[in-house]
Design a protein around this nucleic acid. Structure first.
Ligand SMILES: [Mn+2]
Ligand SMILES: [Mn+2]
Ligand SMILES: [Zn+2]
Ligand SMILES: [Zn+2]
Lengths: 142, 142
DNA sequence: TCCTACAATAGACATTGTCTAAGTCAAGAA
DNA sequence: TTCTTGACTTAGACAATGTCTATTGTAGGA
């Protein structure tokens, strides 16, 4: 966590109470597996700093994404989710019914599955894989 | 195309001018590679049937998705896109700059890359892969 | 301590999608 | 063919998510 704040300071960030709280909400206490929406980040941040605005949360999240400290994931076509686990490549497993998200680590490099003949001249730099199914709770409740 | 209309009739669809136009916009003349947003579908449908409403376009698209005739894809966290190429499994290659989308066919079954130990009791039934990079035009313009 | 460029705020605005109440009509029945 | 009826369509309100601007505040260096 303080690692993150150190990196941000090193990148010239002006350290404000708002930015500190957003970073703490995202990256605090063993939160490597959370995937919060912007509104959820705002709600938790407002718990510590009641006057923080939505615009600041959106701005800060956008900056963290630009800096590569947080990854934006869109698993449901609704609100984007913000993933602080940006330094460990991983993919996501999503329950189609309740929406719960798990980090998963597929075997091999997913990029390698796309042959050159299927790249159409693109410079392919990234791949995002979303596995979908039913979580154990939803499967038994079905 | 008439294939699609036949299947819909067989499923008990009441055939209205609005539904016919939406199906034609999505699945008409060699459109296997289009990925339109709901608003784009509405605009094209309104070209043929000016009084068609947004609600009807959203309703019809939702029905086509439920019936498995069209696939909903969210490549940019903004508007969902509707893909009539639902009967041929494929994935998408997206330009990070201009947003252009290509259908691609990775080697092997992407589901096979997720080991049982990484499934956490989920019943995994589907996988969606989005490759990202720069298209040839955007790469040279960079 | 003071300055100032950068950051935060409130709230308007934009985009995308959902819902409801009222009117319309496709398709089967008579 | 005409009638009937429940499915369908419509306009527009509403909701959720995200963006932008004008104003005010402040972190950090001089
Ligand atoms: Mn994650
Ligand atoms: Mn496609
Ligand atoms: Zn579930
Ligand atoms: Zn491009």
């Amino acid at each position: 966590m303080s690692d993150l704040l150190e990196r941000l300071r090193g990148r010239g960030w002006r350290m404000t109470a708002q930015r500190r709280v957003v970073a703490e909400v995202l990256d605090g206490d063993g939160a490597a597996h959370v995937h919060l929406t912007a509104d959820e980040v705002h709600a938790r941040a407002a718990g510590r700093l009641p006057e923080i605005s939505r615009a600041t949360v959106y701005n800060t999240l956008g900056e963290l994404v630009s800096l590569g400290e947080v990854i934006e994931v869109a698993t449901d076509g609704r609100a984007k989710r913000y993933d602080p686990n940006a330094h460990q490549p991983h993919q996501h497993l999503v329950c189609s019914r309740c929406g719960v998200i798990r980090d998963v680590h597929p075997a091999g490099d997913p990029l390698a599955a796309l042959p050159a003949t299927e790249r159409f001249g693109f410079t392919v730099s990234d791949v995002e894989v979303t596995y979908r199914g039913l979580c154990p709770d939803c499967a038994t409740a079905a």
